[in-house]
Design a protein around this nucleic acid. Structure first.
Lengths: 194, 194
DNA sequence: GTCTATAATTCGATAGAC
DNA sequence: GTCTATCGAATTATAGAC
């Protein structure tokens, strides 16, 4: 096996192990053992346990940002933008379920050394602000009914936050296109678009 | 201060501290310092750190179960049961926001010693099964439109899972009754009830 | 890159005096 | 109930040989 492949395997399998055991409960020894070598070798690939978590979290966070930025910058209507946002979530989650799971469940384990947790929370707030902006635009245009903006934002964010579970769990994976459609229908009905 | 009050204060403040710092990052020394005494005294109130987490998790889990059991056993229609379920969530979250936050965020830190994690997960699945049953009944009666049952269950569960944030965060608390109404409207529209 | 060995720290929990 | 003192275990991370 080429070294680059082993490197890739390390990051892929560590990600799954961390998701399954939880970041706190996963020791460097666990990662090493899972790769079939000793603890010290873990540091051939990463600088620290925190740095590993950072890599995963900021990596997937950036993908969501790029995705939503493209959507917001498009000429789609708010309704179409919302569909595109849900599509983005389904596609990213289907593609990288464990990264998305970490983004949801393990960011609390990020320490604030050198302000990295602050950085992350700032990115998170910025993303939520973009979602809020999308909804506001839809309400302003009369495409969504005027419910509380903060509440509508929370409801929309929540409506896709469970998706990773469908793709990290064993069992039949639902057709992504059908999944998109059903979630979009549900949210658009709830927002009063008809 | 009476001892029973100090005991109560210990459990209340530990709960908040664990929510804010995360269970893993909160040491017994942190809890002691926050109470103004030394580490050893923590063990006057609890047997172990895991036992503390258990107390919180199973306590609030049982309240949700009792609540949904009463709802399911009532003669309400599915639509009314769903409203009651959302009401239950809003009320419990407004009443015990930190317990609910722990139930959502920190159950992963429960170890499986003596099968306690298995027990918790079994309770969790049972609760989700009850929610699913409610939705199924609504579909069977034609009150909800026939979308994928698992998906509808996930959407309903998600629609209230962010609530604790509204009540643990600083800032203006939304009127619980209005909160109930808006979430119910959103979900019932999404489920096709009209 | 892999190993052995170990440093350095932190943490949960206990013993025992007052 | 409170304290001091400490044990024992686990963890992250590093040093240095091969």
């Amino acid at each position: 096996m080429k070294n680059s492949n082993k490197r890739q395997k390390f990051f892929e399998e560590s990600l799954i192990l961390i998701h399954q055991k939880g970041f706190g409960a996963t020791s460097m020894r666990d990662l090493a053992q899972h790769m079939g070598f000793k603890v010290a070798n873990v540091y051939n690939y990463i600088d620290s346990k925190q740095a590993l978590l950072e890599t995963y979290l900021f990596g997937i966070s950036n993908e969501f940002h790029q995705g939503i930025d493209d959507i917001l910058a498009s000429t789609y209507s708010p309704t179409e933008k919302l569909k595109a946002l849900i599509s983005l979530n389904v596609r990213l989650t289907a593609q990288k379920p464990y990264e998305v799971a970490l983004l949801t469940n393990e960011w609390r384990n990020l320490e604030n050394k050198e302000g990295r947790l602050d950085d992350f929370l700032k990115e998170r707030e910025a993303y939520e602000g973009k979602v809020k902006q999308l909804i506001q635009e839809g309400m302003a245009r009369g495409e969504f009914r005027p419910l509380d903006l903060e509440l509508a934002t929370s409801l929309l964010l929540s409506s896709v936050r469970w998706l990773y579970d469908k793709y990290t769990q064993n069992g039949q994976k639902m057709n992504p296109i059908e999944l998109e459609k059903q979630i979009s229908d549900f949210v658009l009905l709830g927002l009063g678009n008809s």
